[in-house]
Design a binder for these strands. Structure first.
Lengths: 341, 341
DNA sequence: TTGAAAGCGCTAACAG
DNA sequence: CTGTTAGCGCTTTCAA
């Protein structure tokens, strides 16, 4: 494909490059006649502007970077999908990179993106990231950035988060509403804010319902795995009498809970209600199907892009940049592992 | 960030832009002294070359496009991951786009990528794509493209495929080896080559073992869904006596099979063996766990990029372009839904 | 060993 | 209404 350039079109039509350029962009100061002539030739020649030249002039690439902790992951896949869709609605393309929950990777991937002159970055902090110099550096350099899902309060930029606290609060409230009184909680590792918030929501709901919080009913799953759920369930049953609900901070772990309970001959939900979190696909095919919390990843992705897009526009218009923090609401998906109200 | 350019560095050091450029790239005709001086300043100023200018000169973006039928999908996520990893090993970044299994989307997304001047494209054909003009156009235009997973024989370019025929053949052979004699097959829709190949592999293995092929034992799942598996199992049991194995062309459907068999009180694998295909995560948490075929998505992604990269190099070196067709081997994952040999 | 100059393809201010 | 010109930041040839 001997590439078509404005120059080529100009020379064929015996016009100047500038005129051709303007004609193609419908500048008002070009006659209709030339416009149609130029456009006709351009489209028949299958002209596409050279994006490098455009970017070089306009100082924008119409490409954004997306750094995701783990690509092979249902929730994050949905986020990727939402970001790509929302971006493409505005004519943006997205370069995706994976941080592998590693601080080093996170820094390196950010650099790669910066070197490619992306217009902005969408980032979910890795679990291991504890200092935010690299992020603050970006912000100081004027690179628009929005944090999604795993964020930090000590970084000043736009953010999109799931309302984990509220979600866990509602779940616990809901379990209590179905008559549960002794609710165990399987929480995640101590670090990420999300698992902290879910734990706090659980605790708060107990308190508001005058159920004394018992720390012995809280178990930690470090691996977020099916087996953790399985093993912890054995412990729960061993340690306590009359537990009537287990609220797991993620579906996969809850799936392990379900299996272990079935093996132990404990009826779900009659004897023990089981609640997951995330609404992964697999929660629809366990037996019984798993009640859970829908985390709208797709919507989160869309929203994250939108916030970035807003900042991009503010910059373009020379307006002051307004950071925005958006909480995405979750909703309880009631299936067969919990009692009806 | 008042961006640092070669010009700026040059003026600070009172050198010419050309010298600075060459010093940074270790040209042999620059003195060590200036080189170190230039490099020191550049790194202290945090200089990163403007990628647009570079691309404009070098006519390459070091970005490739990846068109994926469905982003939220375990197998495809793995492919994305493999592509991104392999690309980043060679300093390439990847823009991901989704075709939604739509012919129109496929064409549009390709255009977006072309407009961004990506160096090459990785594409899995949508199920609805029946004519290949747009692809052949690309190839004629000299855009390197490699097809992965869902390919077409009528397009002449590099390709990476799963050996579906061989995989299904091996599965069937394996089932026969465990003593199964009346093996039902749940196949996918008529169109995509993958489901055809799996069906053909099944058939061939029966023939080679002198088991007469019976078309009544072949069922079609149109939705690739859990419920299809569930419902078809009812039919299978209803239609036939003594079926001793059900080989489903995908895990999700097999999961439905397992549930229905359990409900019917049919022991797996004692009475009926169940075999899936794809080794999705969910096959590890069914009960019993599901024997299946591992489709190495990650490896496929890596390989697809590698083929593209090879072509890119051939072009750069002015060599003739060699198309390569690679078949990725699968392996049987033996779990508890089939009898041991 | 260094630098001047041309040019990649496009845009936009300005002149005619 | 059209064209000239300068310049975005970089690379590379050729001259000094």
């Amino acid at each position: 494909m001997s590439t078509i350039t404005l120059k080529k079109i100009a020379s064929i039509l015996e016009l100047s490059i500038a005129t051709v350029s303007k004609a193609l962009k419908d500048y008002p100061d070009i006659s209709e006649k030339t416009k149609t002539k130029v456009k006709a030739l351009a489209s028949s020649l299958n002209y596409t502007p050279n994006s490098f030249a455009q970017s070089l002039r306009n100082k924008e690439s119409k490409i954004i970077g997306l750094i995701i902790p783990t690509i092979v992951h249902h929730f994050f896949s949905n986020i990727i999908n939402g970001v790509i869709d929302a971006a493409s609605d505005q004519g943006y393309l997205v370069i995706t990179l994976q941080s592998n929950e590693s601080y080093e990777d996170e820094k390196n991937k950010i650099n790669l993106l910066i070197e490619k002159n992306v217009d902005g970055i969408l980032l979910s902090l890795s679990d291991k990231t504890v200092n935010y110099k690299h992020i603050n550096q970006l912000i100081d350099d004027g690179v628009p950035i929005v944090l999604y899902d795993k964020i930090s309060k000590s970084v000043s930029c736009s953010k999109v988060i799931i309302d984990d606290f509220g979600a866990a609060f509602n779940v616990t409230q809901y379990l209590i509403g179905t008559g549960c009184k002794k609710i165990a909680h399987i929480r995640g590792p101590l670090r990420p804010q999300t698992t902290i918030d879910r734990f706090m929501g659980y605790k708060k709901a107990l308190e508001e319902n005058n159920i004394p919080f018992d720390n012995d009913l809280v178990y930690i799953s470090d691996n977020l795995s099916f087996h953790d759920g399985y093993n912890i369930t054995s412990q729960v049953i061993n340690d306590h009498d009359k537990v009537d609900a287990i609220f797991s901070f993620t579906d996969l772990v809850a799936t392990g809970v379900l299996l272990r309970l079935k093996e132990l001959g404990i009826a779900v939900p009659e004897q023990i209600s089981v609640m997951g979190f995330s609404n992964w696909f697999l929660s629809t095919i366990t037996s019984p199907t798993l009640s859970t919390v829908d985390q709208p990843g797709y919507e989160m992705g869309r929203k994250a892009f939108t916030l970035l897009y807003n900042e991009l526009n503010q910059i373009r218009n020379g307006e002051p940049i307004k950071h925005e923090i958006v909480e995405i609401a979750t909703k309880i998906i009631q299936r067969n592992s919990t009692k009806k109200i």
